[in-house]
């Protein structure tokens, strides 16, 4: 549905996006992740036809954005950052303006507006002036105008910024319900959002793609694979050479770079980074060792590297280079 190749965009002398390429398949939800100023918003502005690329191509639904921006604008529903709406209109007035602007036939306008309002939880807000709405409701009106003409592509710039936790959950479930049917690109700097919503992630840093893939692929690709953590209880009774605690486990299993930390009362903590794909096996070996040596596993858990960790690593490494 969306193909971006070699896209660059500069404002004046500043290059906000540098040779970015990616594709988004039909019905996929893709998240753009990156620190402020990484180029997320610029990419979205190009895809909505608001900005033309300085170099490279962006194709939406088979249409080149630079060649026929008007056709692209018809295909796309857009929620800009900050949700700039006309405060002097009521919700109904505003949505019927959008319906007209989107070229809906007179008969289709009211039902489309009603449907969008319902989907966004705006029931009863029709006669309210937009400037009197709370931030959460403004955000919903912004979403309602984006989905009103049932576009195949939705571009949402930080759709949950400034909302309270309940509103965030509602907006997320709305976005999730739209995926599958529509191709969605959303930007955020909230990691859980990406993990909760997106089939694929694009991490941007300083105008370039730092990593891309599904959240799982990214964490596997980012070395280290998994972290195995265990709390081991070995009260008193070790044979010669001390307790069969964390240290003994590391030695027995040949986990050279494992960390062992006594917790007192015969308990000790072991943490070991298993290489990608070997998590199951290593955890099993640890279990078997504990069973064989009489130590007790009070806790055994495995952690994938969080997207957050990947993000920080990718975006701060670049800075220090």
């Amino acid at each position: 549905m969306i193909e971006v190749s070699g896209l660059s965009k500069s404002y004046g002398g500043f290059e906000a996006v540098k040779e970015v390429s990616f594709t988004v398949g039909d019905g996929r939800v893709i998240g753009l992740l990156g620190p402020n100023g990484a180029g997320k918003t610029t990419i979205m502005k190009v895809l909505t036809g608001y900005h033309r690329p300085s170099a490279g191509r962006a194709v939406v639904g088979g249409v080149d954005v630079a060649k026929d921006p008007l056709a692209v604008k018809r295909l796309v529903g857009y929620l800009p950052e900050g949700v700039p709406l006309y405060g002097d209109m009521t919700v109904t007035e505003y949505l019927s303006f959008i319906a007209e602007a989107r070229g809906l036939t007179p008969g289709a306008r009211a039902p489309a507006a009603a449907k969008a309002m319902e989907a966004c939880g705006l029931g009863g807000m029709g006669p309210v002036l937009i400037e009197h709405l709370s931030k959460g409701y403004r955000q919903r009106v912004g979403l309602a105008q984006a989905i009103l003409h049932d576009p195949p592509v939705l571009i949402l710039d930080e759709p949950t910024t400034g909302l309270d936790p309940n509103q965030i959950l509602e907006i997320r479930s709305l976005i999730r319900s739209l995926g599958g049917d529509k191709t969605v690109i959303l930007s955020t700097h909230i990691m859980q959002e990406v993990e909760a919503l997106c089939s694929e992630v694009l991490i941007l840093n300083e105008g370039r793609i730092a990593a891309q893939g599904s959240a799982r692929e990214l964490s596997e690709a980012m070395q280290g694979g998994e972290l195995i953590k265990a709390v081991i209880l070995a009260r008193g009774g070790g044979a010669a050479g001390g307790e069969p605690g964390a240290g003994a486990a590391a030695t027995a299993l040949g986990w050279a770079d494992a960390e062992a930390r006594p917790l007192g009362d015969g308990r000790s903590e072991l943490s070991y980074r298993a290489t990608a794909g070997r998590g199951d096996e290593e955890a099993e070996r640890l279990f078997d060792w504990a069973a064989g040596s009489g130590a007790k596993l009070l806790e055994l858990r495995r952690e994938r590297i969080s997207l957050e960790e990947i993000f920080v690593r990718l975006t701060s490494e670049e800075h220090t280079k």
Binding site: K45, T48, Y50, L70, K73, Y78, P84, L85, A101, Q145
Partner: peptide
């Protein structure tokens, strides 16, 4: 100033 320019421009108007 209020940013509505961006929404207006991305509506299908010439």
């Amino acid at each position: 100033r209020q940013g509505s320019y961006e929404l207006l421009i991305t509506l299908p108007f010439t």
